[in-house]
Write a protein that binds this DNA or RNA. Structure first.
Length: 349
DNA sequence: AACCCGGGGGG
DNA sequence: CCCCCAGGGTT
């Protein structure tokens, strides 16, 4: 069984895999690591430009370690899952300082690093250090569940153990890196989530799901997360040349990114400024300069709705220590969530 | 084990 | 509108 699957895969890789990516064949652990963090739960097409910008700005791990937090977040801005950026910075500084810039070179040691789990540790260990350690990502789960006809949910403890065991049994002894790269390319280009190319698949003869016609029913996933709706009313309190912003510190979406003065609700509010600005600005005189249409953004597990109000002030005020007064010209130096940036780009700048 | 964390593209 | 993406961390 293994011989067939692995042999066919590597043969396909040699003669029919034309996928070209900048990090393919890369053995520099820093570059492998960076690419893998960027690609976590992220499409290759989306991550590619980010990877190139990071490599350009931070050619090695010491450059990244020395960079100010805000600069790195700004470079990560728009990519999502911002804890990846936080862990990226922490790990870079740890390796730069404590390991003299030398990346740990075994799966077990790599796995201890922040932001690195089983998949990423296996990827770095195999690509950079040729360790025989099979990767299990969404592609691998899909390929294996179809080929072997596995209906165990992939997102359970049992499923994770099952798939990592099978993957490790299938990996090629002599070419672990090539095998790992090949199975992910195969999953991304042939054994795709929807409309897989079974008609030209070199594994089709031995594929359980194809032979029994349930290719579209695997892999099985268990978790169904309910989507909650949030209403965010942002007040851009501004003077002639500055605005007030704060960093989101709480455990919530967009942690460590910036925002304006916020009134949040679980449902729509007709005139949010009436109940809010009076209290916030006390005796200050202010003027509502504009009110945006309702903006929306659909996240995986939340639906964000909201409006943006520009509020004019004659002079500076104090909104507490959480808020910073920033000149409008310098807003570009701070990282904002997409929800805010899309407003700024269209209606503010 | 259950829940949380973004944003984009395809059907 | 729903699903998925070179997953990982926290509770």
């Amino acid at each position: 069984m293994k011989a067939d699957f692995t042999q066919n895969l590597l043969e396909w890789n040699d003669f029919h895999n034309s996928r070209a990516l900048p990090w393919k064949g890369e053995t520099n652990p820093y570059k492998v690591w960076l690419s893998e963090i960027i690609l976590q739960q992220t499409r290759v097409e989306q991550g590619l430009a980010y990877y190139q910008r990071f490599i350009e700005k931070y050619p090695d791990i010491h450059y990244l370690a020395k960079a100010p937090d805000e600069e790195v977040y700004k470079l990560w801005e728009g990519l999502g899952y911002y804890s990846r950026c936080k862990n990226l910075i922490e790990t870079a500084r740890l390796i730069s300082a404590s390991h003299h810039g030398h990346f740990p070179n075994t799966y077990a040691e790599i796995l201890k690093l922040k932001g690195i789990g089983p998949y990423t540790a296996a990827a770095i260990a195999s690509f950079a250090f040729k360790e025989k350690r099979a990767v299990v990502d969404g592609n691998v789960q899909r390929v294996l569940s179809r080929y072997f006809g596995i209906t165990t949910p992939v997102d359970t403890t049992e499923g994770k153990k099952l798939f990592s065991g099978i993957a490790q049994a299938l990996i090629d002894e002599n070419a672990p890196a090539a095998y790992n790269q090949a199975i992910m390319d195969f999953g991304a280009t042939i054994c795709k989530p929807r409309n897989p190319l079974c008609n030209i698949c070199v594994q089709a003869d031995d594929c359980e799901a194809f032979r029994n016609n349930f290719v579209n029913d695997v892999p099985v996933k268990q978790k169904v997360m309910k989507i909650k709706t949030r209403w965010l009313y942002y007040f851009i309190i501004e003077t002639n040349d500055g605005v007030y912003i704060r960093k989101r510190e709480e455990k919530d979406i967009w942690q460590n990114l910036h925002e304006f003065v916020l009134l949040e609700s679980h449902e729509e509010i007709t005139d949010p400024h009436n109940i809010f600005l009076g209290k916030l600005l006390q005796h200050q005189s202010y003027k509502i300069l504009s009110r945006s249409d309702v903006h929306t953004q659909q996240l995986t597990h939340q639906r964000i709705n909201g409006r943006f109000y520009r509020v004019g002030l004659t002079g500076k005020i104090s909104l507490g220590k959480n808020y910073k007064y920033v000149k409008k010209i310098n807003l570009h130096g701070y990282a904002f969530p997409r929800f805010i940036n899309s407003y700024l780009e269209k209606e503010f700048y």
